[in-house]
Design a protein around this nucleic acid. Structure first.
Ligand SMILES: [Zn+2]
Ligand SMILES: [Zn+2]
Ligand SMILES: [Zn+2]
Ligand SMILES: [Zn+2]
Lengths: 126, 126
DNA sequence: AGTATATTTGCAACTTAGTTGCATTAATAG
DNA sequence: CTATTAATGCAACTAAGTTGCAAATATACT
């Protein structure tokens, strides 16, 4: 079950993602709200928002958790699986609106894929 | 700098990868050798073997570290970047000998990609 | 073989990301 | 305005991985 009550914590977190639609790491969010929202609450709010199809999560380099806004998802149906791009210079991550074709694998049943492309982002290329 | 001395720990770790050429998680290795090799040493041996191009590492689901034997790599030149397949049933990971084409991204300089395909492995499909 | 040297190891303590249990707070319904 | 129950804060915990340092051991040299 996802978000049931519109609490202050939920509003604050949603605002953060409305500001720019980039991905934000949990580390960053916990740090950013350290005087407003308890660490545990940040984790739990993100969890609920993901349940509701408002945010989606994935792992960046080093295995830390990131969240980004969903496009057309709903509760229990995350339809926006897409690659992510992490900049090796600034560390920021974007969701990519491109399709990666996963090759057919004999004798295996593919259900999904996590793709993290690495390189220099637009800002860091200049 | 990688492996300089052929120690007992190095031999044990290499044997583990010779047995079957699948990927092995660090967790598994630490556990498997818990009465023979200290946890710290396992991490350090794996580190050195990766430096030497003998093993390569990547992150599985949940961000835990896995290692697998390299094909044609040498010190400081890991040439075998390839997708990995993790079974959602048994959790095991294989290196895949297929190419994934990363689309051209405007205004970005791509240097690599980490691809983790998820699904049912050959063994678990039966 | 015996010894010197530097690499490697084990241990304990630490760091960091994330989780759990429980008492308290606060959002919503009636 | 009150009752109900979701949500929060806190402290303590777990688990993966790291660090510093003294002790052990592999290798080179005599
Ligand atoms: Zn950048
Ligand atoms: Zn995304
Ligand atoms: Zn399987
Ligand atoms: Zn591999």
């Amino acid at each position: 079950m996802g978000v049931v009550r519109k609490t202050q914590s939920v509003s604050l977190v949603l605002e953060a993602f409305k500001a720019d639609s980039k991905a934000i790491s949990v580390i960053d969010l916990v740090d950013r709200f350290n005087d407003k929202i308890n660490k545990t609450t940040v984790y739990r709010v993100l969890d609920r928002l993901e349940d509701d199809g408002v945010l989606h999560s994935f792992l960046g380099v080093n295995g830390i958790k990131w969240y980004a806004p969903c496009k057309d998802c709903s509760e229990h149906k995350h339809s926006d699986v897409h690659p992510h791009f992490q900049c090796t210079d600034c560390g920021k991550i974007d969701c990519l609106n491109v399709d990666i074709t996963i090759p057919k694998l004999p004798n295996r049943e593919v259900v999904g894929a996590q793709v993290l492309i690495q390189g220099k982002c637009e800002a860091c290329c200049n």
